[in-house]
Design a binder for these strands. Structure first.
Length: 344
DNA sequence: CCTCGAATAT
DNA sequence: AATATTCGAG
């Protein structure tokens, strides 16, 4: 009896696995166009396919694929495979840095190999520029949702791509009211921003122009960066005051990594400032203060600002090492700049 | 005249 | 809240 049941289960699983593979392959085909931009996605999907196939070696395919409508949704329902994903999740996550670095390398080196640049360039523009509109990828869910997220990102990519058939956003005065088009800081853009910040030594030392140059994003203006930087600094600085009230007396250990402030582990974990300041949970959203618990692995509320901080280690030895400063007291702000970043 | 940062404006 | 624009200082 039991045997029968398990047998059926097995069969079902196999069936689903087959469908899943189909869907994955379909997905991969679509993504392929963005191979350069989303190498990881491609890789991810590929790995998934392989893993899946491995799971059912013999009767790999032989059932009704008719309903291939299950592309991303399948992900959630399919346990076995998901587990595999979880396994590789880590490595992929860390890979992201590499990807970014690579990108940078390319840009920094100012490669002008036409062909290579042409395509990737405008594609990049599309990615970076395009207003993420409704479906901006919420960025990697810091945890297991990674896979899902990635998939979704693909989706949005595709849509973005189709949406504007490769058109570029046009700015310029255009004799209208004169007010510029709002620049939307997609997560990608923001990433570059953060990366630039790192290279420059932190939000307080980095200057808009430098940042813009490092970002190497076509069309990005100084003012835009300046504005973004201003916001970043505001969010970044000690969100001290505010919060307090409740039993929030837990001293938050903030950590400075190459000039970037982050909460001990996961950003967002609320920046409660211990002792000193204390009054009401102010406007700074409950997002900051309130929760000091596990939920909320995100930055200032929704959008962009993530702690995608990456501690880089250039050729070891060379200059500053990781430099991690613990600090539980606010103070140290703008005026204190330069000092803490320089060498240490 | 240019860049920056803070203050405002939208 | 997120951007844009303005303003005063180097």
């Amino acid at each position: 009896m039991i045997k029968k049941l398990s047998n059926m289960d097995y069969k079902q699983d196999r069936e689903r696995c087959g469908q899943y593979i189909k869907a994955l392959e379909e997905e991969r085909r679509k993504i392929h166009v963005f191979q350069r931009e989303l190498p990881l996605c491609l890789d991810l999907v590929t790995q998934a396919i392989e893993a899946c196939k491995r799971e059912l070696p013999e009767t790999a395919t032989k059932n009704m694929y008719g309903q291939s409508e299950c592309s991303e949704q399948t992900t959630r329902e399919f346990r076995p495979v998901l587990e595999q994903f979880l396994t590789i999740k880590e490595s992929l996550t860390s890979n992201e840095e590499e990807e970014f670095d690579d990108e940078h390398g390319n840009h920094d080196t100012d490669n002008d190999s036409e062909d290579k640049n042409m395509k990737s360039d405008w594609l990049k523009s599309v990615q970076l520029w395009n207003q993420p509109d409704p479906l901006l990828p919420k960025e990697e869910g810091s945890q297991e949702k990674m896979v899902d997220t990635v998939m979704k990102e693909n989706e949005s990519m595709k849509r973005e791509f189709m949406a504007n058939g490769g058109e570029r956003r046009k700015r310029e005065a255009e004799k209208d009211g004169g007010r510029k088009q709002r620049r939307c800081w997609s997560s990608q853009l923001h990433r570059r921003f953060l990366n630039a910040l790192q290279h420059l030594g932190g939000p307080h030392v980095a200057t808009p122009k430098q940042i813009r140059e490092l970002m190497k994003v076509d069309g990005l203006t100084n003012d835009e960066v300046k504005s973004h930087l201003q916001k970043y600094r505001l969010h970044t600085r000690r969100p001290s005051q505010t919060v307090a009230n409740n039993g929030n007396t837990q001293t938050q250990h903030l950590v400075v990594v190459k000039g970037l402030w982050l909460p001990q582990s996961d950003y967002s974990t609320g920046r409660i400032t211990g002792g000193a300041t204390a009054s009401g949970t102010t406007a700074t959203t409950g997002i900051y203060g309130a929760m000091a618990a596990p939920p909320l692995p995100r930055w200032p509320s929704h959008s962009s600002f993530r702690p995608s901080i990456i501690v880089e280690e250039k050729g070891s030895g060379s200059h500053s090492e990781e430099m991690v400063v613990r600090c539980s007291s606010p103070a140290m702000s703008s005026s204190t700049r330069n000092h803490y970043v320089k060498n240490i």
